[in-house]
Structures are given as structure tokens and as C-alpha cells.
Amino acid sequence: MYENSGKGCSSIEVGRAALHIALTANRGEENRMKEQLAAQGIKSTAVDFGGEFIPSIVKIIERAVVAAQRQHLVTETHVGAGAVAGAAHEALEQVKNKAVGFNVGGKIGIARCGEHLCVAIYMGVGVLNLNEMCVGLAHRSLASDE
């Protein structure tokens, strides 16, 4: 699925991995995807979110940071947290025009390989069952030991 050939991953591969894990429908599928990605040298995690968009922004970013730290995608330093928070914020910026004023719900996917870290946001936006779908994806570089 993700050909790594031992040379490290590209930002494109890591972005694709973050999006794939964000698209998983349940925990079982998410765990299978994590195993597939790990076999290719890509660490990953995902976390669900939901609520009114504007008040949820800080909570979405916090959830991304906590998930990345708990799964050891980044260290528990301001550098690691800042990389995840920055990428999550940028991904949210890409979808905010559709989401402002609406309820949202979806999943954050985070993937890391070497110096590449990507955060993908996959979410539904709307009222009741009248949803629009949105995807945001952002990349950050950080030292391999962070």
C-alpha cells in the first residue's frame, strides 16, 4: 500500500497515510490501518471530534496534540506539540469557510515518518442529516528525534 523502500517517507506518503486513517469508519478498521502503516514505517493515530465548529476549534487541536503525544508520534515538548497544533490549525483553516456557524463531526488522522508529520481532518458539516463533507490536510517538518 505504502512503498517505503527503506529510504524514509515523503511528505506525500505521510499525507496519504494521515488521510487514510482519518477515513476509517470504526476502531477496528482504524487499528488495522495503524498496523498496515506501521509495517511501512509510518506511525499513526486518529481521534474523533464533534460539536459546534467555532467553540470546538481549541478542543480539536488539543485532541490532536494529546493523541499524537500518547501514541508517541511526537515528544511531550513544546516542539512536538507545536508541530501537531500548527498542522491541525492549518487543516482546520482549509475547511472553516464551510464549517462556520454549523455543527461538525468527524475524525482527525495524524501520521508521522521521520521528519514528516501530517494532520488530516475529515468531517461532516451541517444540521441534522443535511451534511456537507470537508477534508483538510496539512504538513509540518520537525527533527526526527522530536
Rank of each mutant, 00 (worst) to 15 (best):
I54E: 15
R27I: 07
V79R: 09
L92S: 05
A99M: 13
T24H: 09
G41T: 00
I57D: 05
C9Q: 07
E52V: 14
P55M: 06
E93R: 10
T45V: 14
S10P: 05
H89W: 00
A67Y: 05
A81L: 00
L37S: 08
Q40I: 01
R70T: 10
A64T: 03
H78C: 07
A22C: 07
V66H: 03
I54Q: 05
H78G: 10
A25W: 02
V79G: 02
T45F: 08
K34G: 09
L37T: 03
A85L: 07
S56A: 01
V58K: 15
M33N: 02
A88G: 13
K59L: 02
H89S: 06
Q40H: 13
A67R: 14
K98H: 14
G105T: 10
T45Q: 11
H72L: 10
I54T: 12
N103K: 01
R63H: 13
G82L: 05
A91V: 13
I12C: 00
A87F: 04
S44F: 06
A39H: 02
G28K: 05
L92Y: 11
G15T: 03
F102A: 09
G6V: 08
E76C: 03
E29W: 07
D48C: 05
L37E: 05
S10H: 00
K43W: 01
V74T: 07
A38M: 10
N103Q: 00
N26T: 06
